[in-house]
Each structure stands twice: as structure tokens, then as C-alpha cells.
Computed example of a mutant assay.
Amino acid sequence: MASLTVFDLLAMHDFVSDLPAGWLHRLALLGKPVHHPAGTRLFREDTAAKHLWLLHSGTVSIDFHVPGRGDIQIERVGAGSVLGWSWARPPYLWRFGAAVIEDMRAVAVDASRLRELMTEAPDLGLQISERMLDVVAGRLQAARHRLIELYAYPGTPS
């Protein structure tokens, strides 16, 4: 993956691969390839949401903190997934937390610059917004299922 450009990595990611090349080039200017080893805490709830990650490999646990119980995993995401949606709406604070379970490689997109680009290019902004809505809906559904699992089977390990 080291020899691939950010544009190449975006062109291979399902979230944006079908966008026009001109838009991908503009998005590529906002991103950088990143690697985070297993055990890395990417972010916690209520901290500044500064990136959108497009995962190419690895596994990340999405969680939320429950006083007295610790971090409760609600979903695992991997290659081809999108991580982060809290950057898209004020107050730009993470609604969940995330930790790397298996070494992760991704494109990290600067959220502030992405919001600016979405304003400058409304057609692109609409495409990104619609896709992010799908991500949000999926995360909320996963949280719902996890809460049902926890309440229906209180002894389920976190």
C-alpha cells in the first residue's frame, strides 16, 4: 500500500470509488495514508472529531463508555468501512469511541477541510452527505442491536 497515492486509495474504496475523478482528486488533497497498530485508541466520546477514516485493512472497535462497566463495544468495522461521522455536524465531537483491534491502514481525511470542500462544491457535498447518512443509520442500527443483546442477555461479555 505504501506505493499507492491517496487518489489510488480513494479510487479503491467503496465509499467514494464511483465519484467522478475530478472529485476524487479534490478529496485526495485532503487525505493522508495512516497506519495505527492494534491497541491504539483513535478517539473517545466527546473529544474533537477531526477526521473521517476510510479503512483499507484492519479492524476497529466502535464503543461507548458506560460508568461502572467500561467501554462497551457496539460494532466492529474493517476493510472497506467508513469510520467517523461526528465531524459532519456541530459541535464536531465524537458520539462514540474507537480503538484499533487489528493493525489498521486507512486514508484519514481532514474533516475541517472536507466541510469546506462540501460547501464549495455542493454537488459533491450532497453525495458525501447522503453516503454519511447511510453510515450513521448503520451505526445506530448496530448500537440498537448491541443494546438489545446486552439487555436480553446481561451476562454477554463486552
Rank of each mutant, 00 (worst) to 15 (best):
A2T: 14
T5I: 06
V6S: 11
V6K: 08
D8W: 07
L9Y: 00
L9K: 01
D14P: 12
F15H: 03
P20H: 06
A28D: 09
A28W: 09
L29M: 15
P33F: 04
V34K: 12
V34I: 12
H35D: 11
H35W: 05
F43D: 01
A48C: 07
H51V: 12
L52E: 04
L54I: 04
G58Y: 01
I62N: 00
D63M: 13
F64Q: 03
V66P: 01
P67K: 11
D71I: 00
D71F: 01
I72T: 06
I72R: 03
E75Y: 07
R76K: 09
R76E: 11
V82A: 08
W87Y: 04
A88H: 07
P90L: 15
P90H: 14
Y92G: 07
W94P: 03
R95L: 15
R95C: 13
A98P: 02
E102M: 06
M104N: 05
D110S: 10
A111D: 04
A111S: 10
L114H: 03
A121L: 12
D123P: 02
D123C: 11
L124E: 12
L126D: 14
Q127P: 08
I128N: 02
S129E: 13
M132D: 00
M132C: 04
L133T: 13
D134P: 01
D134V: 10
V136K: 02
R139E: 04
R139Y: 08
A142S: 14
H145F: 14
H145T: 15
R146Q: 11
I148F: 05
E149M: 10
Y153H: 09
P154T: 00
P157G: 00
S158R: 04
